[in-house]
Structure formats: structure tokens, C-alpha cells
């Protein structure tokens, strides 16, 4: 589903990602772990086209981004890519002027041109699915952090993406909510989505990810099967991180 090769990203001459490579199969969950500043969020931002890559390539469900493309062609492909990829940001970025229902239904109506009634009905079902049916008419500033997060997830799901990117989905959750979130994400994978989940919490990732990518300073330290990487890592640095972060 996703294949990333030799991905390079620079900010003003400073190289942030040094040739990152990994792949994710359909319906798989990829966990991206690593210390703060190691480049996890930047990988996600490259995957949904918010950052233009400076080297290597990204292939996702048949759409291929390369560093050498013209600006117009890159933009065209990014638009295509965004039809397939949904994102739940760390800071959510809910639309404060729309109700929970409006947040979820806005893009299906405006981008997919779904009839308003259908879109609202579907949005309501999605909110129901994440356990927020009773909050549909409320505005983001009256929702708790966990409720806001579930609105953001419903908003991404409404576009029916094949791939969903999550950046630190547990940063605003208490432990009980963390377990619920893990179950929810597992369900999405079972329902046919491919997930990339960035987290610095080993606890959360354990039992969720099929594959794990451990990042340090913009480089891949280790990439492989989640069980194996957690239980018997090849690299000492991986072991240090997973044990420390546990």
C-alpha cells in the first residue's frame, strides 16, 4: 500500500530526514516511534503532501511522489494522493466555526459534492461509531480533549481514505481512553484501512502495530515486525529506547 524509498527532507538547507525507507502492506498498522525531534511528524507531513520531498520517492496506492517532479505535476499528484490519505493531526485543527457534525460533513459536501442530507446522515453515523452521537451539535470549544479527538477521527474517516495517518493520537488522553483508542484503531484496520501511527508511547503501540519503524535523528535505526522489534531488536539503540520509554 505504501512504499517509501530513500526519503530526504530539508528545511532551509538543514537535512531533517536522511534517506528514510519503509513499506506498509494493505490493512496493516505501521507504528512510527522515536524521541521527540527525530522526524516522525515530518514523515507524516511528507506522506500527505504538506511538505514537498527533497529526495527519494513515496508511493501510495498507485500515486507516486518523486523529488524530481515539476511543481505543477507534484501538486497534481498531491491532490490525487489526498483522496486516498486522511490525517488526524496531533493538535487536531478542528474547524472552530463548525459544529462536530459540520466538521465531519464539510469536506464530503464541498469536495466530494455529496448531497447535503446524505453527508449529514453519514457524518452522524460516523460520530455514533466513535461514541459521540450526543455531541453532534456541539462546537469544538465545548468538547473535551478526548471528544475533540474523536471528532477529528470521524472527520478524516468521512472522506473514506484507504490510508489514515495519526500523529500522537494519545497525547491528550488519560490511560483508560488510551486503551479505547487502541481498540478503535484496531477496528479501523480490521475494516480495511491502512494506518500509520506516530507515537512516543511504547505502551500504546504494543498490541496495535503490525510493523514498527524506530527513528533517531532523522534516520531509520530499525524497521521490521513489531513483535520482533520490541522483543528482540537487532540494534542496541532500539532496545535502549523501547525499554526506557516503556
Amino acid at each position: 500500500m505504501i512504499r517509501v524509498e530513500n526519503l530526504v527532507k530539508e528545511f532551509g538547507g538543514a537535512r531533517i530526514l536522511h534517506g528514510v525507507g519503509f513499506d506498509v502492506g494493505e490493512r496493516q498498522v505501521l507504528g512510527v516511534i522515536g524521541a521527540s525531534g527525530s522526524g516522525k511528524s515530518t514523515i507524516l507531513r511528507c506522506l500527505n503532501g504538506l511538505e514537498r520531498i527533497d529526495g527519494g520517492s513515496i508511493e501510495c496506492d498507485g500515486v507516486r511522489l518523486e523529488a524530481g517532479l515539476t511543481k505543477a505535476e507534484y501538486q497534481r499528484r498531491v491532490r490525487e494522493l489526498r483522496r486516498k490519505v486522511g490525517t488526524v493531526f496531533q493538535h487536531l485543527h478542528l474547524f472552530p466555526h463548525l459544529s462536530a457534525l459540520g466538521n465531519v460533513a464539510e469536506a464530503p459536501v464541498q469536495v466530494l459534492r455529496e448531497p447535503r442530507r446524505d453527508a449529514l446522515k453519514k457524518a452522524y453515523e460516523l460520530l455514533e461509531a466513535v461514541g459521540l452521537a450526543q455531541a453532534a451539535e456541539r462546537y469544538p470549544d465545548s468538547l473535551s480533549g478526548g471528544e475533540q479527538q474523536r471528532v477529528a477521527i470521524a472527520r478524516a474517516l468521512a472522506m473514506r481514505p484507504r490510508v489514515i495517518l495519526f500523529d500522537e493520537p494519545t497525547s491528550a488522553l488519560d490511560p483508560r481512553r488510551t486503551n479505547e483508542m487502541r481498540a478503535l484503531l484496531r477496528r479501523f484496520a480490521a475494516e480495511g484501512h491502512t494506518l500509520v501511527v506516530v507515537s512516543h508511547s511504547i505502551n500504546f503501540i504494543t498490541g496495535l502495530a503490525d510493523r514498527l519503524l524506530y527513528m533517531e535523528g532523522g534516520e531509520v535505526v530499525e524497521f521490521g515486525d513489531a513483535q520482533q522489534l520490541l522483543n528482540s531488536p537487532r540494534e542496541a539503540r532500539t532496545r535502549d529506547f523501547t525499554q526506557q520509554a516503556r
Partner: peptide
């Protein structure tokens, strides 16, 4: 209006014009 609002709109497949009209402008107007 925070930059994240643009990014969220783009991530949902909105064009810059649509993002401005539906997401950014209503907030700025308030």
C-alpha cells in the same frame, strides 16, 4: 487564523480557494 486550519483543510482534499472560502474566511470574519 492558525496555519493548522489551512493544513487540515488541504488534508481533506480542499483546494486553496475552497479552503479559504469555507474554512479560513468565516473564522477571520468573526
Amino acid at each position: 487564523v492558525p496555519r493548522g486550519q489551512w493544513e487540515a483543510a488541504y488534508s481533506l482534499g480542499m483546494t486553496p480557494a475552497l479552503a479559504f472560502r469555507r474554512i479560513i474566511f468565516p473564522q477571520a470574519f468573526r
